[in-house]
Design a binder for these strands. Structure first.
Lengths: 144, 144
DNA sequence: TATGGTGTTACTATATAAATAACAGTTACT
DNA sequence: AGTAACTGTTATTTATATAGTAACACCATA
């Protein structure tokens, strides 16, 4: 992926919504927690609801997860917010007059696919519920 | 921010050096194949030699792999050219006054580490020799 | 000792994402 | 119904990592 922390922010948003489901869930309140701005949060939430992970209602402060947190994987979130689905990137501009230049892209695409699959498999094994529990556990340990 | 194809270029450089070891291996010649410029290539090669993958001599056109291509993994190359060693990135700026904001970074670091390890394990299983053979095989198939 | 290459640093340009702004449309409340 | 608040979306600006370029001291070879 590019150097982006959208995935992190998306996990943050979903965790916040689940943890604080009975409190203020306006884009402003969530933005405060991320130290970002409401517009960005709304765009993130838009991606998440388009991907079927979040249920929102226009004009109404009522976001909620579309399914239990243990049925939402990190991979689901990653696929929802990352358009390219590529952690590694081939150089698109190589010399087609060179035997290496004209073949290296295909070669790397196959290799990178394998790495991507391994990463995605790992992401699939991590569910939002685990992340939320980890956050709450850390918070609990702070308070003693 | 731009996404990086340094890893791809590094694989390209090493493959080129191994394949064309008896021909012109000047940074200019390699840059032509990548459609980049000599200075960038020299910087890449500097990283690769610092990591012990490449042997070069200042002032002399004589780069060569420091060990057989089947003993250089994609992971070796990745570690040589990528400073941060992070495919995923946590948002460094979250609100420490919020229970989620002050814990999510640690939580995500653990999760991302797991994904990183999975990706790196996959990279370790791919060796430069495989990539070179794949390039040559593709070239051969073109010519029939 | 002249020519050409390397290794390195500094600087510029470019691309991508974050941040911000703006606003039509929706909801909720009185 | 009227109004205040919020969402969803698009457009614009800003920040910054990376590629690209330039420059040059040092080294190697003929």
């Amino acid at each position: 992926m590019k150097y982006s922390h959208k995935l992190s922010d998306a996990v943050h948003v979903l965790s916040y919504i689940e943890i604080f489901q009975d409190e203020d869930l306006s884009s402003k309140a969530i933005a405060d927690s991320i130290e970002s701005n409401p517009s960005l949060i709304r765009r993130l939430m838009s991606s998440l609801s388009k991907a079927g992970l979040l249920i929102t209602r226009s004009g109404s402060v009522s976001p909620r997860l579309s399914r239990p947190a243990d049925q939402i994987s990190l991979l689901d979130i990653y696929l929802a917010i990352d358009d390219s689905h590529e952690l590694l990137h081939v150089d698109k501009k190589t010399n087609m007059n060179c035997p290496v230049g004209r073949n290296i892209q295909d070669t790397l695409n196959v290799a990178y696919d394998q790495v991507q699959k391994a990463a995605e498999k790992s992401m699939q094994s991590i569910v939002l519920q685990d992340l939320i529990e980890d956050v709450l556990m850390r918070e609990k340990n702070r308070n003693k």
